[in-house]
């Protein structure tokens, strides 16, 4: 069980870090009717609007990486694994709410200009949620109490 929990915690941390490099939200929007659609992609480390990088894009990767590090440290202590999993869940929950708000905001604001608009979550958020599930699973089988 010790090995299983260690493997699961390792996988959870790796998945969480990998998720920061994947798109968290993807928007395909037209700002004026005659313009082509622009892709608006947010990852844990950058926000791109077409070819332009947002200099002040939020670095969601930092709290995710910190929680992932705690999860990894949890291989040694069950309570640390538990706290790390909870921290990762908190990070994911707040990020999910932010993304959901941002996606619906852009949808509501641009749908009249561009009926062909596409706005939704990227794969990163689903990988991140999976990491939370893996981390809690690892805590359950963690033998050290």
């Amino acid at each position: 069980m010790k090995l299983l929990s260690a493997v699961l915690l390792g996988l959870a941390a790796a998945a969480a870090v990998a998720a920061t490099f994947l798109p968290l939200s993807e928007l395909l929007i037209r700002l004026t009717p005659d313009q082509p659609q622009t892709e608006f992609v947010t990852t844990g480390w950058s926000t791109h609007f077409g070819g332009t990088k947002d200099e002040h894009g939020p670095l969601f990767g930092i709290p995710v990486a910190a929680a992932a590090a705690t999860v990894l440290l949890g291989i040694r202590w069950r309570k640390v694994a538990y706290a790390g999993a909870a921290a990762l869940a908190g990070v994911t929950g707040m990020l999910f709410v932010y993304l959901l708000n941002a996606i619906s905001f852009h949808k509501a604001g641009n749908i009249t200009i561009d009926p062909g608009l596409e706005a939704g979550f990227g794969n990163g958020i689903w990988v991140l949620i999976s990491a939370v599930v893996l981390a809690f699973g690892a805590v359950v089988v963690h033998p050290d109490d």
């Binding site: 790390g84 909870a86 869940a89 908190g90 994911t92 929950g93």
Partner: peptide
């Protein structure tokens, strides 16, 4: 721990 994570995003 979860609240600390949420504050991290904020």
């Amino acid at each position: 721990a979860a609240q600390l994570g949420a504050v991290g995003i904020t």
